[in-house]
Amino acid sequence: MTSHAFDVDAFLRRPLTARIATNGPTVRPVWYLWEDGAFWILTRPWARLVHRVREDPAVALVVDECDPATGLVRQVTARGRADLVPFDVPRGRRKLTRYLGADESRWDPRFVHYLHDDPAERGTVWLRLEPASLGVRDLSYVTAR
């Protein structure tokens, strides 16, 4: 097994899917934004994620990639206490643009409302995780060719 350093911020800026775990345990895939040293995840008031975080804000999150063809295996694991904070449209646009592209007219309609409806009326909030610990591993290996 070889070890390679990699740029964690560049890795986390990629539109990868994370998995977040709450007490219960419950694990779910999420899109996220890595910004200001925190993970930002959109959620709504009826989501179990909101209720679980209100009951117990301790969460764990992993972002990883694995490509058996090239041997590339990288992972970032975060742990900490999540906060539910008010939604802001500019951050929401940055998050959705990274997953859906810059042309909002091409987005699936279920995502457009985040940027044009009143977030207070809809109840949209951010789950913000500023990691108390951040584990970074490059477990890449040389493939047999």
Score class of each variant (00 low, 15 high):
residue 32 Y to W: 04
residue 76 V to W: 03
residue 125 V to P: 05
residue 110 R to K: 07
residue 83 D to E: 15
residue 14 R to S: 07
residue 114 Y to T: 14
residue 99 Y to K: 01
residue 21 A to M: 00
residue 96 L to D: 07
residue 25 P to T: 09
residue 66 C to F: 15
residue 75 Q to G: 14
residue 21 A to P: 02
residue 34 W to M: 03
residue 67 D to W: 04
residue 32 Y to F: 11
residue 110 R to S: 11
residue 80 G to L: 06
residue 37 G to D: 07
residue 35 E to N: 14
residue 64 D to L: 05
residue 112 V to T: 14
residue 40 W to K: 05
residue 41 I to D: 14
residue 123 G to K: 02
residue 67 D to Y: 02
residue 72 L to K: 05
residue 104 E to T: 13
residue 107 W to D: 03
residue 74 R to A: 04
residue 92 G to R: 10
residue 89 V to R: 12
residue 40 W to M: 06
residue 14 R to H: 07
residue 61 L to K: 11
residue 20 I to Q: 01
residue 29 P to N: 05
residue 120 A to H: 07
residue 25 P to S: 07
residue 133 S to N: 15
residue 75 Q to S: 13
residue 116 H to I: 09
residue 129 L to V: 12
residue 128 R to W: 01
residue 52 R to I: 01
residue 100 L to Q: 11
residue 52 R to A: 02
residue 64 D to T: 00
residue 28 R to N: 09
residue 72 L to S: 12
residue 65 E to H: 04
residue 68 P to G: 09
residue 83 D to M: 02
residue 29 P to S: 05
residue 60 A to T: 00
residue 120 A to N: 07
residue 54 R to S: 03
residue 69 A to M: 05
residue 70 T to E: 05
residue 46 W to E: 15
residue 87 F to L: 06
residue 121 E to C: 12
residue 65 E to R: 06
residue 93 R to Q: 15
residue 56 D to T: 02
residue 18 A to H: 03
residue 104 E to K: 09
residue 118 D to N: 13
